[in-house]
């Protein structure tokens, strides 16, 4: 269970919210000037980083407003929430050590989390 802080309503249970994909994807000013590839890139292709990610959320069951969130996708740590139109705040977070490795703090995905005893292999 996660708590998410809506910039309007305050802290609520995650079940009230829906994820709406990557944030700050601007619609092209002149879509008619784009090549098919550029248009496909805008419509379909999104970043999917392991680590810090800016994404849109909507408070579906509450105020029904979109807002932005900075979240560490490897740990599910929520670093900041801010309103649409605001500049993302500067944050720092633990990034995964290797492309396939877990972040040094606990992974949000318990199914793949490997725990080793202190000092052991």
């Amino acid at each position: 269970m996660f708590l998410i802080t809506c910039p309007y309503c305050g802290t609520r249970d995650q079940s009230e919210f829906s994820n709406a994909g990557e944030a700050h994807v601007a619609r092209p000013e002149k879509p008619e000037d784009l090549s098919d590839e550029e248009w496909a890139d805008f419509v379909f292709l999104r970043n999917n980083p392991k680590g810090l990610f800016a994404e849109r959320w909507i408070h579906t069951a509450g105020c029904r407003r979109f807002f932005n969130m900075l979240r560490n996708t490897a740990t599910d740590e929520i670093l900041a929430v801010y309103k649409v139109g605001e500049t993302p705040p500067r944050v720092s977070t633990a990034e995964p050590a290797t492309p396939s490795g877990e972040a040094p703090i606990g992974s949000g995905n318990d199914a793949v989390k490997v725990e080793r005893p202190e000092g052991g292999e």
Binding site: C9, E16, A61, G62, R64
Partner: peptide, 9 residues
């Protein structure tokens, strides 16, 4: 507050 009550908004 708007929220989920049982399975309904």
């Amino acid at each position: 507050a708007g929220s989920i009550f049982a399975a309904a908004q």
